[in-house]
């Protein structure tokens, strides 16, 4: 069988596993904390967005890899 295509989406897929789990943990923990202390919801949400932005960055770096002109073997 011959598969034709770019291998970069695979790299992105692998990176997405990690940041997917990471974002899930962050949001889940935030929900847990807000359930315990609802009055902190605003500040926790801010922290959650910062965490998500940093975690997701790995995903976007993986996208960027596809555009780096590596030398051909």
């Amino acid at each position: 069988m011959n598969l034709v295509g770019h291998i970069a989406p695979l790299a992105f897929g692998l990176a997405a596993i990690g940041s997917g789990v990471g974002v899930g943990v962050i949001v889940g923990k935030t929900v847990e904390s807000v359930a315990r202390q609802p009055e902190l919801a605003g500040r926790l949400q801010t922290l959650m967005w910062i965490g998500i932005a940093i975690t997701e960055a790995l995903c976007f770096i993986a996208i960027g890899v596809a555009f780096i002109p590596f030398p051909a073997p």
Binding site: V4, G5, H6, P9, F12, G13, A16
Partner: peptide
């Protein structure tokens, strides 16, 4: 998000196929 990645991957593979 997973669906998005899936769609992006599929479309890249499909587009690379000879029509």
């Amino acid at each position: 998000m997973i669906l998005f990645l899936y769609a992006l991957t599929t479309s890249l593979l499909v587009a690379a196929d000879d029509p």
